[in-house]
Nucleic acid binder design. Structure first.
Lengths: 258, 258
DNA sequence: ACCTGAACACCGTTCAAGT
DNA sequence: ACCTGAACACCGTTCAAGT
């Protein structure tokens, strides 16, 4: 039984080999990049569990063992497609915006990635190493918090809280937890036709949006209540040099730090 | 190597068959309950990936196929051990406490479960169906929010936000994401001996605690800022009967709902 | 250099056969 | 009734052998 569907037919690939591009004629010449892209496509369509070296190879019309010449193992493959996805993160760098708006934008960028790769984000969030400390998202988040007036020694802590909060929401939204709990209310259990299908899905999506906004505003309000500056400061205000270590407690009424 | 601890030591089983009935003497007689318990133990010790029907059977000193007489398949097994874990959730029912304290207690109960079953919670949170709408945690959470003055039609939404936020933090705490980001700060990269081992772990744990408290106080402050009652109301106040459906908007200045 | 068939050690699950 | 061996259709990965 031979799995290769066709010689060069390719699968879903947009620019895939041969059709018009004249050059590079027949063989796509297996590449780590191309393998990662195909794997990501497979995950997006069929879910993370459908990703196997053998199935991926079949998708690409290639012998399963050939993959191992470009990708050391499945773990590396997973890392590769994660990298591909996070590279899509589009974090705004507008340094002049209000910190609230900046937080909202960062959160929405993250959420849009989650929606674009719903099947992957579950894996991404559930495994460490997705958010790198020098990545655009984490950097922008920390900068924004600093500009909001969060004391330097608390920026990482609060950044972690915000990031994990949003991750938790997105995970629940994508994996169905949110939908489950939503269809409950304090009082329901009535008749409620079991299948409304598409209409229900749209209503759910709208409610997810509202929930996301509500959570966002909740944490922003919390930051404000705990001493984040009400207006965007022209500078970091306060002392010229950033307060280092936990030397003296700040006079600020912020007790988020404990 | 035989792992069976004792002949009839039993586990959590309360009313199981034949206690007085004389029989059952030596062999523990495979039971769904007992299988779930053994599986949970295996997951706790070796991680979720180490759980296989065959390995579990080996652990129990039993033929792999015997398991299928008591557990239909692996998915059901997973459901079983999840049920076992959530049954450990110890949600306080003190209805007279301040709603803030109640939220804190619910959150800490959840967190303690996450710590007790660190290897399972990753799976639990990443998969739907863990929190049932009629479970103790969700019920208590919604009740508490209602008592805090959250309008009835927003309780589910805000409850979802809080629950998923906490889940996200716990997931990141348990899977290492938090630790990764923690060891970064806006400025680090100095010498920093690579291996401090246990000391580092303890410092991390303390910082995780602080982060959890910070997140908790953040959302509580956010709820207060958005109109949750400052003091615990004596009653649910407002209309005597629970407001049904999305009838009329409340006059309350709370705009978390959008 | 790149690819590949066969093989190994695992999976979950089915089923006819044992006691 | 309960258990079990053999078998099937999958895995990831290695490796000697092909071109």
């Amino acid at each position: 039984m031979v799995t290769r569907a066709g010689p060069t037919d390719g699968g879903a690939g947009g620019s895939r080999g041969g059709p018009a591009s004249g050059a590079r004629r027949d063989s796509p010449h297996l590449t780590a990049e191309r393998i990662h892209a195909a794997a990501l496509r497979l995950v997006d369509v069929d879910g993370i569990d459908a990703l196997s070296m053998r199935k991926l190879a079949a998708t690409m019309g290639v012998n399963p063992m050939s993959l191992y010449h470009h990708v050391p193992n499945k773990a590396a493959l997973l890392r590769g497609i994660c990298g591909l996805a996070v590279a899509e993160l589009d974090i705004p760098v507008r340094a002049d915006a209000d910190w609230r708006d900046q937080l909202r934008q960062i959160a929405h960028s993250y959420r849009s990635l989650a929606h674009r790769h719903g099947n992957l984000i579950t894996y991404l969030i559930a495994n460490p190493g997705f958010i790198q400390r020098d990545g655009a998202l984490w950097t922008a988040l920390c900068e924004t918090l600093a500009r909001a007036g969060i004391p330097a020694e608390e920026v990482v802590r609060i950044g972690n809280v915000l990031l994990t909060f949003v991750s938790g929401f997105l995970l629940a939204e994508v994996n169905g937890t949110l939908g489950d709990l939503l269809r409950s209310g304090p009082a329901s259990g009535e008749g409620e036709q079991p299948d409304d299908g598409a209409a229900d899905a749209a209503a759910d999506a709208a409610e997810f949006d509202r929930g996301f906004e509500a959570g966002l505003e909740l944490v922003i309000a919390g930051l404000e209540a705990h001493g984040a500056s009400a207006a965007t400061p022209a500078k970091t205000s306060r002392s010229g040099t950033a307060p280092r270590r936990r030397g003296g407690r700040t006079a600020r009424p912020n007790h988020l730090g404990r």
